[in-house]
Design a protein around this nucleic acid. Structure first.
Lengths: 336, 336
DNA sequence: TCTATTAACGGAAACGTTTGAAATACTTGG
DNA sequence: CCAAGTATTTCAAACGTTTCCGTTAATAGA
């Protein structure tokens, strides 16, 4: 690998000058800067990331904290897409991304935060299904810039999907279709679940739609089996709803199967809506009526915010950015 | 951050001794090593990854090269799962992973290989849909340890799924069910497509099953729309097959929709098989008969091989490791 | 012409490690 | 009790940068 020194001897200047020239400092003449930049290019010079980081404490590396209880990790389409756009935006700004978790190093267990310190990441994005773990708290309370996705902490900037208004839009559509007997299956207790339920509740009361306790079930996100069971349970009651809100699109597949197995069909006998707008939901027939989260914007915004936090710490305030999604009218809701 | 020096002054020894003690060198007495290790723990010491890397040229970072033409990236379930298990295994061994691609740094375009050099990754895993790009060649021809997934280069160890025998197994099952009029839709030209077609061809000839050119179509992997069109085309012929091999499970969804739209049903009127064994395929009803690739083993094996290549360069030979998958009998193939 | 100012560049320390060689301290056998 | 050997520890250089500060050269003002 060619170093600053190599360039300096070739051009007969000091390494200090080379460094300054390449980094665009002002105290180097235009003539020499041009010459240095040129030979650096000729010799195929690239800065040594380690040496630079050692000196400057900046690695241009962003840590991604990325956990879900089921260990599905990247398989989770929402996270995968968000990460994808996050990565793209970060790379555009010259940052690389590294996965961060708790791990063993040299026989000693290292918390996620310690891991971040060890790798000297410049910033951290947290996208978890569970924000209540000690590992998350330690990172939140640390002194590395953090952006959270779909969860809000005090004093930390967050990028959140508009879960509340998204759910409102869904309910309004369903209500517009004439439904009043509506069941709601939600995912595990979390900030996201709370928000969605709030939107559902708000829209229902505005519409004068009764929320029956026995039609308000709590299950798991992204768990088709679980949703299958819960849907089955709903369908066994003497009175059944005309429309079911599934926890999310993926889980909805289980729900739809339960409906099918009960000898009913969507949307003729019963209607269903999902949440997320994952690719598969639009490949079903009928297409699932759902609310598509704007994952490209969420990821890119998180990256931009995080980088801004890193590069001008004082000019950026912690804020909460809500990203709107888009209602997708499929064919899974019958117009009564 | 507490450094070796901090520990050394606290214990009244030199930094060299501390370094050696913590790294398990032999030339330090048991008493002092114990003392040093203990105070290191007490003081919350972690090595500075940059400084260490600068000195040793080992970063304990693995680069992941991960491209597909459609830009689906992590959304591709096969890759997502492989990456997940790769990551898990790598972390177990103390390595972190960083995404590597071509990017701009300091205004100059950096090739993927240069990016690897810049970050000093210890090894690279390549999992692409297209292995024919200059970027891939540059990495392959470089001097950083490499493991490829699902593609074989000379002199580079590769972990490949058993595409050939997997496809054979599928065909044999279908043939056992009594099918002889079989269509085959394959994905884009690639090592994987070649292997699968080879398996299909081999098994067909062994069984005496004719491969009709007009029933052998080439489309895209993971492209439901494309498969929808191709399936529709197949169904428009005067004579239609009794079973269709879809490029993969995801694409199969398009094919299944085409069948449904043609007023036919699976498996009563026509049978279908997929490939991959993605989660969704087993949520359809009927479940898709397919061949599940062992993504956990593929990823973990790739990580183990790569790390072995890094840690004992001479004792490890480049090899090709084939990972078996598993036949999944769904309900999408009718027994004639 | 002389001094003050500015522009351009170099010296050198520092970041936190690792490591071979040198130095010191301990054993042990004769 | 000494020499030779071994066990333990320290020195110091090195990895490739960045950056503060000092130095020289050039320019301008008087």
């Amino acid at each position: 690998m060619v170093s600053l020194k190599d360039i300096s001897v070739r051009c007969g200047v000091s390494v200090a000058t080379v460094s300054k020239a390449l980094n665009g400092h002002k105290d180097v003449s235009e003539a020499t800067r041009e010459k240095l930049v040129r030979t650096a290019r000729e010799m195929g010079y690239f800065p040594n990331a380690q040496a630079r980081a050692l000196k400057t404490n900046r690695t241009f590396n962003l840590g991604v904290m990325f956990l879900d209880e089921a260990g599905r990790g990247l398989t989770h389409e929402f996270f995968a897409k968000v990460l994808n756009s996050f990565k793209t935006e970060a790379e555009r700004a010259g940052y690389d991304i590294t996965f961060i978790s708790n791990k063993d190093i040299g026989g000693r267990r290292m918390s996620t935060y310690e891991h971040c310190k060890y790798r000297s990441v410049d910033g951290i994005v947290i996208a978890c299904t569970d924000f209540t773990t000690p590992d998350v708290f330690e990172v939140i309370n640390g002194d590395i810039p953090v952006v959270t996705i779909d969860h809000i902490f005090d004093c930390r900037t967050a990028v959140v999907s508009n879960n509340e208004s998204g759910m409102e839009k869904l309910l309004n559509y369903v209500a517009d279709c004439g439904h009043t007997k509506i069941a709601y299956i939600q995912g595990k207790r979390s900030a996201v679940a709370e928000k969605r339920l709030a939107g559902f509740w708000k829209a229902c009361t505005a519409r004068g739609i009764e929320i029956r306790p026995d039609w308000l079930l709590t299950g798991d996100y992204c768990n088709p089996d679980n949703t299958y069971q819960l849907t089955k349970k709903l369908l066994k009651n003497k009175e059944i709803p005309t429309c079911i809100f599934m926890p999310d699109d993926y889980a909805a597949i289980g729900g739809l199967n339960a409906i099918k197995d009960a000898g009913l069909s969507v949307p003729e006998d019963i209607s269903a809506v999902g949440y997320d707008g994952i690719a598969y939901s639009q490949l079903l027939s009928p297409k699932l009526t759902t609310y598509s989260q704007d994952t490209p914007t969420i990821g890119a915004t998180a990256a931009k915010q995080l980088i801004s936090l890193i590069e001008n710490p004082r000019s950026t305030f912690t804020e909460v950015i809500t990203v709107d999604g888009q209602f997708l009218e499929g064919g899974s809701v019958k117009k009564l």
